[in-house]
Design a protein around this nucleic acid. Structure first.
Lengths: 286, 286
DNA sequence: GCTTATTTATTGCAAAAGGTGATCCTGTGG
DNA sequence: CCACAGGATCACCTTTTGCAATAAATAAGC
């Protein structure tokens, strides 16, 4: 069976009208090139190049082969890039996808070495479903219970802050201690995956811990509710950075021993060797 | 650079829905196949086949690659056959081409392993010109003076006989000796390449040797002339076999030391490695 | 739950192929 | 006639390849 490297070198010899020139350009030794041409000629059973001192002249057979060789090389190139240029689909919840992932995506695209990246923003349960359906290649999750067939890798430990509206009694505090927090009523976000789960982990299985007075569907809704004075909530610090800067919300760190969410990068084990995936995951976690 | 063998095996694995079945059909060991798929996957940086216990499932990347792989393999096949199926053009004078070459050509075609063969029948000088013009790949010649750039290889030493019409005074002889011949007047065939050259070689440079009384353009014309009683001639035995059998001509061998023509197979040195050529020449001379 | 049968992965080794620098061969130009 | 340049050949080393044997994994059957 023909070898594409031989064909590449054959084309180069004709293009450069000589072995030495071609060898220089291909960055291989000239004897190698001689041997490759001989291999090709033996394989096909025809002489391809008349070796004259002043340049090489292609034989009739070489002129027949040349367009096929070029097509094969072009097709190989296309095959390779059709694989490499598959878009990478990354899932994340809105607060992660919007506030934390964007800088990474932008820098990754600027590197220009990887695939195009599509960020799919949806609720955590939906992201999880898409991931197991194979509709996502990677997801950044706020929680994960080990599933066989998936790799989970810690990404960032993101601090959680208490948010209150500017006029709130706690708005002047520079930190909140555990006891204060445990007596509050908080607004929850996404059912089952957000504040409730976080509090259970933080305060342990036995009370007293904060009641969750309201269960809203997304971080954006929670922020809105807090702004209009419906209460306080715990959110990832990075998702309220903007509101804190323009003064529409006040974020108070929880001191001692630091409330935080462990963000995870999840991808199917079957994509272990998938270059786009590990290239992107590598970029995230470097 | 991708390896076409890997691609072939990749396609086979998907076609047979499993490594073992594909290995059987490809007549290679199963571990080899495993390694080829791994090579391909590493090269492309993607997983291609989900190895499930009951059959293999192609990944999305594999489905992307598959049509490229098939195209590459088809194109390789076409490239190969476009070279191999070039027709072989064989030149010969009419008496050789018609009476001696045909059985070889027929048997060669029956073998079915070589290229199609076109036999070009023309006068010897024309054949020689076409050969050096590159319009013929091989020629069978009755004479040859070494030319650089051509290989000349002895083919058959074909006996020459004296032909006379049935009523001729010599018609009853079973052989002709040299002396008898040297006093005859013979009808010549092709100028410069046939009987005259042959006689000069046979009788040496100094006379006495037969006079050439008439110069006809072809062996067929010579035979016709002899039949109608215009004289005798020397021709290759095989070109009058039919006439001898049906009694329209009498062929008398020249005894001691045997007049004959050394037939040569000639081809350009540049086709040394040209499989169609050496396959055909090999068949002729085997 | 354990066993079995089937299928792919891994390993170790011998053989083949690949790549390279040194050297040889051969037309070409002075 | 000689030097030169381009390609072929050679010897040597490294890498790759292919295979047999064996291991590991997984679904089906009891």
């Amino acid at each position: 069976m023909l070898n594409l490297v031989w064909l590449k070198n054959f084309v180069a010899v004709l293009d450069h009208n000589g072995f030495q020139a071609a060898a220089r350009q291909l960055d291989i030794a000239q004897p190698t090139l001689s041997q490759h041409l001989q291999k090709l000629e033996n394989q096909l059973g025809v002489l391809l190049v008349h070796r004259g001192r002043s340049g090489c002249e292609p034989t009739r057979a070489a002129l027949t082969l040349l367009p096929f060789a070029r097509s094969l090389l072009r097709l190989e190139e296309q095959a390779r890039s059709s694989i490499m240029e598959a878009r990478l689909r990354v899932g994340a919840s809105s607060n992660i996808g919007i506030y934390m992932l964007q800088p990474y995506i932008r820098r990754y695209k600027e590197l220009g070495v990887g695939p195009e990246v599509d960020v799919v923003i949806d609720s955590n349960p939906t992201i999880a479903r898409h991931l197991s359906d194979g509709e996502l290649d990677v997801a950044i999750m706020e929680w994960w219970h080990d599933l066989p067939g998936f790799h989970a890798q810690a990404w960032r430990n993101e601090p959680v802050v208490l948010i209150v509206p500017p006029g709130h009694p706690l708005a002047r505090r520079t930190d909140i201690d555990r006891d204060t927090l445990s007596n509050m009523a908080l607004i929850g976000g996404e059912p089952g995956t957000g504040t409730g789960r976080l509090l259970a982990t933080y305060f342990g299985e036995h009370g007293p811990f904060p009641t969750v007075s309201m269960q809203l569907g997304s971080t954006e809704a929670v922020k809105q509710a807090v702004k209009v004075g419906l209460g306080a909530s715990l959110v990832l610090e990075s998702s309220v950075r903007e509101e804190v800067q323009n003064g529409s919300l006040v974020a108070i760190p929880v001191s001692e021993p630091g409330l935080s969410k462990e963000l995870m990068v999840i991808y199917p084990s079957s994509l272990d060797k998938h270059r786009p995936v590990y290239s992107f995951v590598g970029h995230l976690c470097e």
